[in-house]
Design a protein around this nucleic acid. Structure first.
Lengths: 205, 205
DNA sequence: GGGAATATTCCC
DNA sequence: GGGAATATTCCC
């Protein structure tokens, strides 16, 4: 079991003196603190070892390099997190705005994540998912976006679009119903040729 | 490291025949499957042990009892989950709608969580976060109309519905793409049996 | 018990 | 790289 101690945003809010709403000082998110400590502790450990480096700060201390993702994932991640997946680690880095800064090696950096600057970690925040911004494939039509920019989203427009979307949905569902009918017919037909049951044909696909 | 294999709702959607929007069959959420298997495996194991029971189905098999939360948390939870906290386990039970059904012991039940009825697990769903805020998905018109009457159409609500509709559309389009692929394969296959060209087979339908 | 934040996973 | 679902944590 990892020593994980996950915190919420709330309990990370330290209101220095029942502070100003804008001037809140946060202690770092668990992920950032753990990653920072991982670097400090593991780098120190590696100084005493004869093995190749697995992970370390880069030369300038402006980022860090995972020299061996395999060993890093297998040996170090479980010591700090509840998993051993490199991709989950990367996902977290992206969530907190780290950038991959080299093409040939796993080097990441973040403006506020530097060697010797633990106090900056509290200023790193998770990227917002911006509830008003939809993913590309779900992006509202240009009309809506245009209206939004003008701070003038038309309710009428939205309702109209929703109406159209429901209509589209119905059409798509009808298409699917048609496909299902067709599939059944094809299956039956094929069954005759195969001289076999519907289900046996199905196994072909 | 636990053997955890967490799935999303998406990959749990088994479209039996790339089915109707309402008729989706889901395989159980990882949490439910693991809890069910925990009960089966650990109960079996305890039959061979001389120790007191830690966890088991209740007498009727309509629920289960954690006889020793301490041992349960320390010994069993880590085998199935990425933690050893009883409260996190309880949180998940609540998320999936389980009820505590005894005051003097940790006994929980859920209508669709019964001994010998593994097939029912797929019918258990996570509880929605806020039915009053995001029902646009299921009852768009009612919500919108109600809000309209109150002269209080929520823009957020509309955009939420808009978002969900787009998502649905994408899913339907993916189903259709799948059907098209299937149809092509079936046609090709049939062509071989008919000893003829694609187009000739098509005339059959 | 459940809201909400962060973590982990899976998918595009 | 990031959206979104589930998992885990923390709080009320």
């Amino acid at each position: 079991m990892a020593t994980a101690a996950v915190g919420t945003a709330e309990d990370r809010t330290i209101s220095r003196k029942v502070g100003q709403p804008p001037t809140r000082t946060k202690c770092p998110a668990p992920f950032l603190l753990k990653t920072y400590e991982l670097l400090e502790l593991e780098e120190e450990e590696e100084n005493y070892s004869e093995k190749n480096k697995v992970v370390s700060w880069n030369e300038e201390g402006t980022g860090f390099v995972v020299w061996s993702p395999a060993e890093f994932s297998e040996l170090m991640l479980p010591k700090y997190f509840k998993h051993n997946n490199f991709s989950s680690f990367i996902r977290q880095l992206n969530t907190y705005g780290f950038k991959k800064v080299a093409s040939k090696r796993w080097e990441f950096s973040h403006e506020k994540f530097k060697r010797g600057s633990k106090h900056l970690l509290g200023k790193i925040t998770r990227k917002k998912s911006d509830p008003s911004a939809f993913p590309a494939y779900l992006k509202p039509c240009d009309q809506i976006l245009a209206a939004k920019e003008g701070n003038n989203i038309s309710l009428q427009l939205l309702m109209e679009e929703n109406h159209n979307l429901r209509k589209e949905r119905l059409e798509l569902e009808m298409q699917i119903a048609h496909f299902k009918t067709l599939e059944t017919k094809l299956m039956e037909c094929l069954s005759q040729y195969v001289g076999n049951q519907h289900n046996k044909v199905r196994r072909l696909f």
